[in-house]
Simulated assay, not measured.
Amino acid sequence: MKIAETVTFGGGGLDRAEDLRRHPETLAALPVRTLPLWRGKPLANAARDGLTLIDGHAFAALGQPVLIGRDEEAVIFARDVSALDVDGKADSVDAFRDGSEQTHPDLPAGTAFTDLKRLMTHLTPRDAEIAATARGILEWHRTHGFCANCGTPTEPGKAGWMRGCAGCGRMHFPRTDPVVIMLVTKGERVLLGRSPGWPEGFFSCLAGFMEPGETLEGAVRREVWEETGVRVGPVRYLSSQPWPFPASLMLGAHGEAATDAIEIDPEEIEEAVWLDRSEVMDVFAGTHPWIVPAREGAIAHFLLRAWLADRLD
């Protein structure tokens, strides 16, 4: 797919400076810029169209600094500052919306911790990649403080890109969960579904986690069959998207349906529908009577727009 890397969080070109992870002396001699994150929310600039990186090791008493990459002559670190006593009440946990912002007197004027899902379509590709990387790696540290082999507390190493166990010597590295997300079509129609708990009228491409020993093609066919009873024939890869909520890699694929009768599994999905091109155009235009579009910035939105524009090549 020629436009594959124009997906949100794609094509940022970040220099991840892997060499510096192995050379702490060289790393320590370089100027530092820090991106603080509070409960996974990066620090946004006053215009809310970019990140705010603070010179030096900001909030050094808080969190584990993790090397994100190299920016000209400086290096970028991310730091979890969730222990910070901030101004601004956080929204209740909501997978779709968090309109709250948090500030602190020590932050630059006008900046605030802002939900990445709210920011993502306003960021440059580079800032989006920095934010996605920072959120994903800090969440991994937050949830992997103990050795999965023996239960001993682990300690970070390699500039935050591993955790070592003093008990059994095991080294643990960040993991990404592969998820297939499918643009399933039959002729001029596309198959969409909604999960329980989603906002009213919200439909998206079908998706599901891959299983051990499974190919991308096999996962696409299995997930579509399990959720909707539709059989899929040929499958091809289209594009991928890091999705750090908390740690997925969305593998976008196009599947050609061999059948179109829908029989949902209510434990897997709440509803599924076939829509033709004109109906999907109405969805994106906001004129469909009961369906709202997939989240802007998510790969489902990207794939559906590409299908409408005949840009799956």
Rank of each mutant, 00 (worst) to 15 (best):
A148I: 12
T121V: 15
A247M: 14
A298H: 12
P293S: 07
F146L: 13
E25N: 03
D94V: 05
P178G: 04
R295Q: 11
P125W: 09
G157L: 06
R163M: 10
V179Q: 06
V66K: 00
F202T: 01
G157Y: 02
A58L: 04
P153A: 08
V180D: 02
R97P: 00
L238T: 08
P153N: 01
P199N: 03
D106T: 13
F113R: 07
L20G: 05
A166S: 13
G136E: 13
H23T: 14
T121K: 10
I137H: 00
Q64R: 09
P65R: 00
R135D: 05
D282W: 01
P105F: 06
M162Y: 05
H122Y: 12
E214Q: 15
L51Y: 06
R126C: 09
G88E: 08
S82G: 11
A159D: 08
W225A: 15
L308G: 03
G286T: 08
P212Y: 09
V7G: 06
H57S: 14
I130A: 07
L191G: 00
A58W: 04
P125H: 10
A272T: 02
G229P: 06
I264R: 05
H172S: 13
G63C: 04
G255L: 01
L308D: 00
G99N: 11
V86A: 12
T121N: 11
E211P: 05
F202L: 13
Q64C: 09
G145C: 10
S239P: 01
Q64D: 09
A28L: 05
G213E: 04
F209D: 15
P125S: 11
G110K: 10
M1I: 01
D71C: 09
A285K: 13
F173T: 11
E211D: 14
E188N: 14
L192W: 02
G169F: 04
M120D: 14
E139G: 11
V235G: 08
P244M: 08
T8R: 01
G160Q: 01
D87G: 10
S240R: 12
R135H: 09
R39I: 07
E129P: 04
T259N: 02
L67S: 01
R16Q: 10
T6L: 15
G50K: 07
H288C: 01
I264V: 12
